[in-house]
Design a protein around this nucleic acid. Structure first.
Lengths: 352, 352
DNA sequence: GTTAGCACTCTCAACACCTAAGTGCTAACG
DNA sequence: CGTTAGCACTTAGGTGTTGAGAGTGCTAAC
């Protein structure tokens, strides 16, 4: 059986209508409100055939039809008409990013909040991959008890820190020296380049090889997204959607979002080439839980990864709106990052 | 009307029974299972009188009785019999704290998890007040763009960090010098003592007063608990309790725990003298939301505050169990902290 | 290929009815 | 005067019935 243009049109109507109303769509509804030139009986024939093709399901005979996950996928691929944001939404994006705090941690949080507020779904976000970032400063601070704090500041001003073990008999002065050596070795390099200097570094370090090894280990762990990097905003938004009037669904959803590890796994393996990714639960995308849909966008500006942002919610999601929000937020974000870079250059030029 | 001993006994039975079964308690139940020497009619008279005193309520005439918040308060004050933990629970506490990681951040998380697992409620935790902690190391690291990273490591190995603004024309070397001066000034002092050296510090700093002022500002903010210090574990545990089969209650609960600010406010203002505090929503404790109960304990060892830990859940909470868990966890925690201190001293003695 | 018409199925709300649980009250008892 | 048995009363919750409404599938006619 082929997908005629009319079938596509009808499928599109069903999905649009169901997204907006959350009520199973009837043939009468379609014929009266959207396709006034054909009768409900004709629509019924087409619906029956779409059902046979796997795009629609019905709970019971007299209950209207509901899109299947397969239908949503097809809808997103081919049928969906792009949404536009209202002026007030656009204003909101502008005003949210106009605050001048350029601390990346805060930026991630505010982007996540904007997305959640505008889409009315729970937003998930994960910061930039640290891989490509260049180390601006790397320091070991003595803390006593055979421990030192490793502080790394990268070009993007993200700082990461963790304790490493040092020999108990190492004095603060020795540690300071070691810190200086490490500084020389790594400053200006990207985190991923740590491996390349590994041999050289271990050589140079003589008796404190162990310390160096720990530092390199720590550097390596930074290239993976960590639990703390996952930001979740607006979990309570799910109550605004009728599928979560059922306690079982709430439970399921909660159990998904309460594991940040799992979320990191879900959104962390994005292929950077794909700008917007839609994953729909059940059968298709292995890891996405049933009855859940995950829409994410990976942003970048000036060749730099800015992180992955998106929403998680019911399969019956307002994809046009969500995608419009993600696109607009992305543009705004790229805008401010590029402006910032330009400012920086101008300032430098002006002073030199 | 007086509270006779028999009334107290009956009230205790009602609360115990309701805590365990979540079913409104009937006079017949009490007479048959607990007070076999008197008849249900007598119990009924007593129940009616307890209701008049405000300790009991009923949803409808034939529905049995349910304790009021006032009854829970009285129960905790006077009636409750202390619970004992099972051997397996005690073992669990021991094994959970035997891991030797003495990183405070991790310790808080694992304590919170233990409490949540053993009580089956959502656990809230907030780390030690920084007030009394002595600064072990304080450093300013240059980050470019008129910013520097302030890194503070305290005796408890808690590290806190934030960016501060520095004059754009300040060189890295100047910053390093400033860092050294600041180090000298503050090392070994408690965070709360920052104010005392304020005048002296501003004096000494000459042209970079501004930097010093920012550092002192930052120090001041650390004495308040911050959003990031609040740890929440086991939010999904609420589904194990029947009051949260109602979507409205889940919604309410979620909205409470989704604001870490609010939680910090709730548990952060503990009077350190009180070891265990019970706050029951509705009328009594202003800030605790209706239908919620908050039980927290503030731990300390060797004069040092170790943070505040507890659970948040329905008013119908298993107070004896929760309090037993909090007490045992507290003892275990104090034990390991004291052992650690002793080890530290022994090591030092051995080496010197 | 399209459509009108109709029988069929299913949900949902309303209603009556019944039962079980628990209470309050009263009158009798020691 | 406290205690108790007995009984009438109240209410939630479950069940069965009914009718209306919605939507479909099928068929025969256009």
């Amino acid at each position: 059986m082929k997908m005629s243009d009319r079938k596509k049109k009808i499928l599109q109507i069903v999905v649009d209508e169901y997204i907006n109303t959350a009520v199973p769509v009837s043939s009468k509804n379609i014929a009266e409100k959207h396709l006034t030139d054909i009768s409900s009986a004709t629509v019924r024939n087409e619906l029956a055939s779409l059902e046979e093709l796997g795009y629609l399901t019905q709970f019971h005979t007299s209950g209207g039809r509901v899109p299947s996950p397969q239908a949503y996928r097809f809808y997103i691929e081919e049928l969906m008409e792009k949404g536009n944001l209202s002026d007030s939404d656009l204003d909101y994006i502008q005003s949210a990013f106009s605050s001048k705090s350029n601390d990346v941690e805060h930026l991630i949080k505010s982007v996540s909040k904007v997305i959640s507020d505008l889409t009315d779904y729970t937003s998930v976000a994960i910061g930039p991959h640290a891989d490509a970032e260049r180390i601006r400063s790397i320091t070991l601070l003595p803390c006593g008890d055979g421990r030192a704090l490793l502080v790394i500041v990268t070009g993007e001003r993200i700082l990461r820190d963790s304790f490493i073990r040092v020999p108990e008999n190492m004095t603060d002065e020795e540690l300071e020296n070691a810190s200086r050596v490490i500084s020389k070795l790594f400053e200006g390099k990207a985190l991923t380049e740590a491996k390349e200097v590994e041999e050289e570094a271990l050589q140079e370090f003589g008796q404190y090889r162990q310390v160096m090894a720990e530092v390199i280990d720590a550097l390596k762990t930074y290239t993976h997204p960590r639990e703390e990097d996952v930001v979740l905003t607006g979990a309570e938004k799910i109550f605004n959607h009728p599928e979560y009037e059922d306690i079982g669904n709430v439970k399921n959803f909660l159990s998904v979002i309460s594991s940040k590890d799992k979320i990191a796994e879900l959104i962390g393996d994005e292929n950077d080439e794909i700008q917007i990714s839609v994953k729909i639960g059940s059968s298709g995308d292995k890891d996405v839980p049933d009855d859940c849909s995950l829409v994410t966008a990976t942003y970048s500006a000036g060749g730099k990864n800015l992180g992955t942002y998106g929403v998680i919610g019911p399969i019956r999601m307002d994809y046009p709106k969500v995608i419009a929000v993600l696109e607009n937020v992305g543009r705004a974000l790229e805008g401010i990052v590029e402006n910032k870079n330009r400012d920086k250059h101008n300032n430098k030029d002006g002073k030199q």
